[in-house]
Simulated scan of single mutants.
Amino acid sequence: MKRYLQYGFTTFADHYGSSEILYGQFRKGLLASAMPTTPRPIGATKWCVFRSPPTPYSRKYVEEAVRERMSRTLSDGIDILQFHWQDYDDPRYMDVIQHLLDIKRDGKLRIDELGLVNFDSRRVDEICRTFGSGALVTNQVQFSLVDTRPLYGMASVCAKHQIKLVTYGTLCGGFLADKWLNKPQPDPYFDSLTPSQRKYLDVILGAWGGWELFQTLLSVLRAIGDRHNGLSISNVAVRWVLDHQFVAAVIVGARLGVAEHKDDNAHVFGLRLSQQDRVDVASVLADRTDKI
Rank of each mutant, 00 (worst) to 15 (best):
L81I: 01
T55R: 13
A135M: 03
I42W: 07
T138H: 11
W208E: 00
N235C: 12
V284C: 07
L205W: 04
F175P: 04
L31G: 11
R59Q: 09
S33A: 11
R239Q: 10
A282L: 00
Y93P: 03
H261W: 04
R149D: 14
F143K: 05
Q185G: 03
S19C: 07
L145K: 03
G115F: 09
A248N: 14
Y23H: 13
R227Y: 04
L109M: 03
L171S: 08
L205C: 07
H15Y: 13
V166N: 09
Y168F: 14
R72C: 10
A237W: 03
F83Q: 03
T38D: 08
Y4C: 14
D14L: 12
V284Q: 09
Y23V: 06
R69P: 10
P188Y: 06
A266T: 08
R123N: 13
P53G: 15
V166C: 12
A159V: 09
A266M: 10
K164P: 08
L101H: 08
L22C: 12
E20C: 06
G253E: 01
R288F: 06
L205K: 06
T45Y: 07
V117M: 13
T55S: 14
L74E: 14
F269L: 10
S234G: 14
G153D: 09
T130I: 09
N229L: 11
V279E: 15
A65C: 14
D263E: 13
S196D: 13
D287S: 10
G8D: 01
R122E: 15
M70H: 08
I80M: 07
L22I: 13
R288H: 03
L136K: 00
H99S: 13
S52C: 15
Y189F: 14
T55D: 15
G210F: 06
V141D: 12
L217Y: 05
S234P: 00
L242I: 05
S274A: 13
P54W: 07
T37P: 02
D125V: 07
K183R: 15
R288N: 02
M70R: 10
R105L: 10
V137F: 13
E113G: 02
F214D: 00
K160F: 11
T73S: 14
P39M: 01
R59W: 01
I103K: 00
H228S: 05
D263F: 05
L145M: 12
D191Q: 03
P39L: 03
L285D: 02
F119L: 10
T216M: 02
R122L: 15
L31K: 10
I103M: 01
L109I: 01
A223K: 15
G253T: 04
G29E: 09
V268M: 01
V247C: 07
T45I: 05
F175A: 08
D79K: 00
Q140A: 03
G8R: 05
L136I: 06
T194G: 05
S58N: 05
I103Q: 04
K160H: 11
G24S: 01
T73I: 12
V247W: 09
I42E: 13
Y57D: 04
M1F: 11
Q215E: 02
D89V: 10
E113W: 06
V96L: 03
A259M: 13
W85D: 07
L256W: 13
T138F: 14
H161W: 05
R272I: 15
Q245N: 14
C172H: 02
L242G: 00
L181S: 00
F119E: 04
E63M: 10
Y61P: 09
